[in-house]
């Protein structure tokens, strides 16, 4: 029953994405900043200038270090940049969800979960 304890206190959503997606999701009210001194945001704005290593670090933090995040939302084109990490992350918690962004239409072929679905059904 360790898993039960593990996700009982997961309440937040985290987001990694371009400015528009992050703004919209923050408007919906998912933004959370932990108390100082080590104020941690649960969102990361990615633009063309953002280093891939920074995205990787944020993804690792959201998925492995923070225990209060239940769902990680990540723009698909951002996920493309760290595809190897997203594909290797297979734990059920937190759930990693690839979402479409304004400029990049959603492509089901690239989604790591949908890829598994397709593979399972032998398509």
């Amino acid at each position: 029953m360790a898993a039960t304890v593990a996700y009982k206190d997961r309440q937040l959503l985290a987001v990694i994405g371009d400015e528009d997606s992050v703004t919209g999701l923050l408007l919906a009210g998912i933004g959370h900043v932990t108390n100082p001194p080590d104020a941690q945001r649960n969102f990361l704005v990615v633009d063309a200038k953002t280093e891939t290593s920074e995205i990787e670090r944020a993804f690792q933090t959201f998925t492995q270090e923070r225990k209060d995040i239940a769902v990680v939302l990540i723009n698909q084109h951002v996920a493309e940049r760290i595809r190897h990490i997203v594909d290797t992350f297979t734990d059920p918690f937190p759930a990693v969800l690839e979402i479409p962004s304004k400029d990049h239409p959603y492509d089901p072929e690239k989604d790591s979960v949908l890829k598994r679905v397709r593979r399972l059904f032998g398509e």
Binding site: R10, Q11, L27, G29, I30, G31, H32, V33, F43, V71
Partner: peptide
């Protein structure tokens, strides 16, 4: 959101990011 930026007449992204403090929208397992 595009409608918003048109109506506000500028980018609200920065303002929104800075004012986010407590999650209003949460999930329960």
């Amino acid at each position: 959101l595009a409608e918003v930026s048109y109506a506000v007449g500028g980018d609200i992204g920065y303002q929104v990011q800075e004012s986010a403090k407590q999650a209003r929208f949460r999930v329960r397992a």
